[in-house]
Each structure stands twice: as structure tokens, then as C-alpha cells.
């Protein structure tokens, strides 16, 4: 069988903490296999060597927060056959989307000595709010096995096995005891997409919703149950306003507890 031509992989970063692209380097055992199958053409966090586009697969981390970002993401889209946005920043705007709920002008005035140098948008938004995206990989940060699965599926021309159901199903499959039911903790698991590997519930902490809304999030019902636990409106709003604050479902629920 002839060797297939190695697809070119690019990794781009927008407004983010770099944790998601580090997940790629965190693949350790699988990294050699990966570079055996793809050609890393653009990945500034890992190598200075840069190859021109077009790229077969581009992983995009980070949210769109500046006018420059908008231009850059359009260029990335133009150069990429397949564009996969990775992480809560790229798929929902990230924690920095908390700016969407306040006055950016005010923030800039308070933080910077020379506000006139700051050229930023009033919102932090997902990549898919600006260009078409082929697949959105959730998480804050993303899960390494899910990342490998998406790359793997993309390279082999199949659909990634990334479930959209609740975190609860992953907790139960892993035999994790429910924090909400057994400890009365405020948990976003029932409205959050699975995939983290039960990181928090596995160490007796309720779900923070890092993977964003599950496929059919009934946030109103969960919020009512949280209120019945004795959580205040402010607490409930804060729960929904974290890493995925600007995802549709969490934003609407958070707004309704203002």
C-alpha cells in the first residue's frame, strides 16, 4: 500500500490561557504516534518552525476579543480544510466572556494606565460566532483522549465519538457517587456535556460545567432544584457564569437570576 501523504496540522491561539494546546503536548505516550501520522506545520507553542498554509486540520484555541482577532480567524478559516475549535474559550468565549456582562470601557479605565492603547471588542465570543467551524471540542481544558479521538476520526474520515449527553452519565459509568444527591452540593453536571473524565466529581466536588451545556440542557429545572437546596439567586447566577458563561443556555439561565 502506498504511504499516504501526511496531513498538515496547525495549532492557532487566540484569547486563552494556552492550556488546551498544551493538552496536545500532554499526549506524551501518543505524541510520537501522532507526529508519525501528521506533519506539524504550525504550532508556535511547540516549535518555531512554521510552514505556510493551507492546512489539512487546524486546531483553534481561544476566543475572539479584538478587531485583529476577527481578521486573523477569517484568515485561519481560509487556510484550513478542517477547522476544529478547542476549549471553552474557542467554543463559548471562555471565562473572559464575563466582560460581556459588564462595561468593557469601565474595566479598561480601571486596569490600564493608558486606556488609549487598548483596542478591544466589548465581547469575548466563540470562534463559531465569526467563521464556520467543522467541529467544536469542549472543555476547560479539553480532555486529551477526546482531542486524540477528534484528530483520529478526522484523519480516518469518520465521525468523532464525542457524546453530547450529560456529565451524569459519565459519573454513573465511572461509579462516581452523585455530589448533588448524596452531599447536597450545587452541581452543574445534569446540564453539562460529559467528557472531562469525572475530574471533579471523582474527587468529591460537584461539577463546575467546564464542558459547557449538554445537548438538551434544562437549566431552569436544575436552577429550581438548586434554589430548593437553599442557594441564593446570586449563587445560582455565579454557577452559570463561569468558563462557559457565554454559551447560549448558561447565559440565558444566568441572566434570569440577575
Amino acid at each position: 500500500m502506498p504511504e499516504r501523504k501526511k496531513p498538515k496540522l496547525a495549532v492557532f491561539k487566540f484569547s486563552s490561557c494556552d492550556g488546551c494546546q498544551l493538552t496536545l503536548l500532554d499526549c506524551e505516550d501518543e505524541l510520537l504516534a501522532l507526529v508519525g501520522e501528521v506533519r506539524i506545520s504550525y504550532f508556535l507553542e511547540a516549535t518555531r518552525k512554521v510552514e505556510k498554509g493551507p492546512y489539512d486540520v487546524s486546531l483553534v484555541e481561544g476566543s475572539i476579543t479584538t478587531p485583529h482577532d476577527i481578521k486573523a480567524i477569517r484568515e485561519v478559516r481560509r487556510m484550513s480544510k478542517t477547522l476544529v475549535s478547542i476549549g471553552a474559550c474557542a467554543t463559548a468565549g471562555g471565562i473572559q466572556a464575563l466582560r460581556n456582562f459588564g462595561s468593557v470601557k469601565e474595566f479598561i479605565r480601571k486596569v490600564y494606565a493608558h486606556p488609549e492603547y487598548i483596542d478591544t471588542l466589548t465581547t469575548s465570543t466563540a470562534v463559531s460566532d465569526h467563521v464556520s467551524v467543522d467541529f467544536e471540542l469542549r472543555g476547560c481544558p479539553i480532555n486529551k483522549y477526546q482531542l486524540l479521538e477528534v484528530l483520529n476520526a478526522t484523519l480516518n474520515g469518520r465521525r468523532p465519538n464525542i457524546p453530547r449527553h450529560s456529565q451524569c452519565m459519565e459519573c454513573k459509568a465511572n461509579g462516581v457517587v452523585c455530589r448533588m444527591v448524596a452531599a447536597g452540593e450545587p452541581c452543574l453536571g445534569p446540564v453539562t456535556q460529559a467528557g472531562c473524565g469525572t475530574l471533579c466529581p471523582g474527587v468529591n466536588r460537584a461539577c463546575y460545567g467546564c464542558f459547557g451545556p449538554m445537548e438538551t440542557p434544562n437549566t431552569a429545572s436544575l436552577a429550581a432544584a438548586l434554589a430548593a437546596q437553599g442557594r441564593s439567586r446570586d449563587e445560582i447566577q455565579r454557577l452559570f457564569r463561569s468558563f462557559n458563561a457565554n454559551s447560549d443556555a448558561f447565559r440565558k439561565e444566568g441572566d434570569s437570576h440577575g
Binding site: 449527553h165 450529560s166 451524569c168 452519565m169 445534569p190 446540564v191 434544562n218 429550581a224
Partner: peptide, 13 residues
């Protein structure tokens, strides 16, 4: 349906 979270806990347990 207004109360159900579709979380699947009932089916898992």
C-alpha cells in the same frame, strides 16, 4: 418534561 433534566441518571441507576 418541564422538570426532567434528560440527564439519564434514572436509567443509569
Amino acid at each position: 418534561a418541564a422538570r426532567c433534566l434528560s440527564c439519564g441518571n434514572c436509567t443509569m441507576v
